[in-house]
Simulated assay, not measured.
Amino acid sequence: MSGVELLALAASTSLLAGWRLYLVTFVTGLAMRLGWIDLPDKLVALDVLANPWVLVLSGAAALFEFFADKIAFIDSLWDGIHTAIRPLGGALLALAIVDPGDPVWQVSAFLLGGGAAFLSHAGKAATRVMVNTSPEPVSNMIVSTGEDVATAGLLALAIANPVAAALIALILVLASLWLILSARRFVRRLVS
């Protein structure tokens, strides 16, 4: 992978970590382990995500998150707890993908990765505030399943074509901003 592709992969995985941190960590590590992500020789030391322990822990957490996300009140609690965890996880994912020998890349990846994960998490949580207030449980499950499918699809695209995935990630950043502002207006109307 070229430097541009690695940066695009870091951006995409960070953004997706704001939705499904554990699934993204698991799939990225599995892709590294199976050789789907071709790391340059100088980055082979970064295959920490491919460590069997990391794969088992992130896989188990992804499975738990899959079910927790389908129940409205548990989902809201889960999102609240992960407001700090997902941005940090997104920052660390970006850091694990870029060149470890260049401090400028490290700091840039960490800051941008954390910011992207926070923004997508905020968009997800803002959307869920609106969906979870619905009296029927079906809408939450539909939205959650849509997030699962979108995360898996975009992650597959990020592995196959990181630059295209980064462009889609940019569109998602703009959509997240719109969702945050919409949720803010929605909450204001509820309070008023």
Rank of each mutant, 00 (worst) to 15 (best):
N161S: 04
L95N: 04
I71P: 01
T13A: 05
G35Q: 02
S76P: 09
S139M: 12
P137H: 10
R185S: 13
A84E: 08
W53A: 10
V138T: 13
T127V: 12
V138S: 12
T145A: 11
L172E: 09
E136R: 05
M130N: 01
G29E: 08
S14M: 14
A183W: 06
R33V: 02
L93V: 03
S192N: 08
V44Q: 13
A175H: 11
A94L: 01
P52R: 05
A117M: 09
G146T: 08
R189D: 14
L77T: 15
S182Q: 12
V104C: 11
L167E: 11
L167I: 02
D102A: 07
A50H: 09
S192M: 11
D99I: 00
K42W: 11
L39R: 01
L77P: 14
W178G: 07
I81V: 06
V138Y: 14
V107W: 07
N51Y: 14
G59Q: 02
L7Q: 06
A150V: 11
V191F: 12
G29Y: 10
L57G: 08
R185P: 07
I81D: 07
D75A: 15
T25W: 06
G113K: 04
A72S: 11
D47N: 11
L77D: 15
T28V: 11
S192I: 04
A160Q: 04
A116Q: 02
E5Y: 04
A84V: 03
V191E: 15
A160Y: 09
R185I: 03
N132M: 05
L157P: 01
L154A: 03
A8T: 06
A165G: 03
N132F: 08
A152N: 08
P137T: 07
A17W: 03
F186V: 10
L77H: 14
I85K: 02
L179V: 10
V131F: 09
F64I: 13
L39W: 01
A164D: 15
A166R: 02
I142A: 12
W19G: 04
V187D: 03
S139Y: 15
L154I: 05
Y22R: 02
H121P: 03
G146S: 13
L177Y: 15
